[in-house]
Nucleic acid binder design. Structure first.
Lengths: 205, 205
DNA sequence: GTCTATAAAGAGATAGAC
DNA sequence: GTCTATCTCTTTATAGAC
C-alpha cells in the first residue's frame, strides 16, 4: 500500500535468502512496536524477528522513525478515507455520524495494528506530532458532524459536542485494547454493539 | 500516600539543598513518564527535572522500575478502593454500577497522572504484568456487577456483559487523554456526562 | 543526602565487502 | 539485498568521597 510499488525487476521467482518486501518488514516492526512499545523496541529486535541484520533492514527503511511514519500513515489514511466516502458527506447529520462511527470501527478492525500504534503516539518527535495533528483534524470534523446532529435534533444537546465526540471516540478507540479478529465477535457485530451503547445507552427502557 | 510515612527525624525547618521526599520525586517522574513515555524517559532526565543527580535519585528509589511500581500502586489502590466503598457493595446492581462508574471517574480525575500511567502499561516487565493482573481483576468485578444488572433488568441484555464493560470503561478511561482539571468542566459534571452517554446514549427520544 | 566519576551494556546508524 | 564490523552516543546502575 505504502512503498510497495513494484521495482523495475519484478522478481518472478524468489531465490536464495528470504528477500522481504517493505510491507512485510513494516508489519513485523509494527507488531513489535505494539508489543513492547516503540521506544523499547530496538532496530536489532526488528531485524532479528525477520531473520535479518540491522544493515539489511536499513536497506529498506532509512530509519526506525521512517517505519513509524509509514505505519501511522496507514492508520490515518484509513480513518480519513471514511470521511471522504459518500455516506459521510451526504444526508442528515445524524445518519452521517452513524455512518462514520461504523466506518471507524471497520478501519480499526481492518488495520488493527496500525491504528493501535497510532493511538499510542504521544508527540515526542516531528513524525508523531504530525500524526497527532491529523488525528486532531479528524476529530474536529466529527465534532462538527455531531454539532450539526444536535442542531437538527437527532442527538441530545445537553452535552458539549466536543466532550461527546471525545467520549464516544474514546469508546471506539478502546476497542484496540481488547478486540482480536480471531474471537467470536465479528467486525459488524462489534460495530452494532458500539452503536447501541453510543446511541441508546446501557439502560433499559 | 505511598511512602510518605514521616521519618524519625521530622525535619521541622529545611536547610541547605532541596531535600525532596519520595512523593515529590514520584510526581516528577510520573509527569515525565507520561510526557515522554516510560521507556523514553531516562533516570537522568528525572534527576535533572528535580535539580538532582542520578545518584541522589537512586538514594530514594532503588530503580527506575520501583518508581513505576509505586506509581501504578497509587492508581490501582484508588480504583480498588471504589469497589470497597459501601455504595459499591450494597443495593441494586444497577445502582451499584452507576456508583462505581461515578467513583472511577472521580479517581481518574483525582489521581490523573497515576491512572494515566496505569492505562499505558502493556506488560513488559513483572511490575507491569502484576499491574495488568490487578486491572483485570477490577474489570471482572465490574463485569459481574453489569451482568447482575442485566439479570435484574436495569441494563439491556442484548450486549455481552464483558463487551459492555469494556466499551463503557474504554469511554471512562479515555478521559485521561484529554481531561485537564484546570478546564471549564469539573469532575462532577464530567461524571454526569459520562453517565448520560453510557446509560442513555447520544440519541434524542 | 548529595556529589563526581565510571563501569558495562545497548542503542541508532554507517562503511564497505560480497 | 544481505553481511560483518564499527562508530558514537546514551542508557541503567554503582563506587566512593564529602
Amino acid at each position: 500500500m505504502t512503498d510497495s510499488a513494484p521495482t523495475p525487476d519484478a522478481t518472478p521467482a524468489r531465490r536464495g535468502r528470504p528477500g522481504y518486501d517493505s510491507p512485510q518488514i513494516l508489519a513485523a516492526a509494527v507488531d513489535l512496536f505494539i508489543t513492547h512499545g516503540y521506544d523499547a523496541t530496538s532496530v536489532a529486535a526488528v531485524a532479528e524477528r525477520l531473520g535479518l541484520t540491522k544493515s539489511a533492514l536499513y536497506h529498506h527503511y532509512e530509519s526506525k522513525e521512517h517505519l513509524l511514519s509509514v505505519a501511522l500513515d496507514e492508520a490515518l489514511g484509513g480513518l480519513e478515507g471514511v470521511l471522504d466516502e459518500p455516506g459521510a458527506r451526504a444526508g442528515a447529520a445524524g445518519a452521517r455520524l452513524e455512518y462514520v462511527l461504523r466506518g471507524a470501527v471497520g478501519v480499526l478492525v481492518d488495520r488493527l495494528p496500525y491504528v493501535t500504534l497510532l493511538l499510542r503516539v504521544r508527540g515526542n518527535s516531528d513524525v508523531e506530532r504530525q500524526a497527532l495533528e491529523r488525528r486532531r483534524a479528524f476529530d474536529h470534523r466529527i465534532t462538527g458532524m455531531l454539532r450539526d446532529a444536535q442542531a437538527e435534533g437527532t442527538v441530545r444537546a445537553d452535552i458539549d459536542p466536543s466532550v461527546a465526540t471525545r467520549l464516544v471516540f474514546g469508546m471506539v478507540n478502546s476497542i484496540v485494547e481488547w478486540y482480536r479478529p480471531t474471537g467470536p465477535e465479528g467486525a459488524a457485530e462489534l460495530a452494532d454493539d458500539v452503536l447501541r451503547v453510543a446511541l441508546d445507552g446501557l439502560r433499559t427502557r
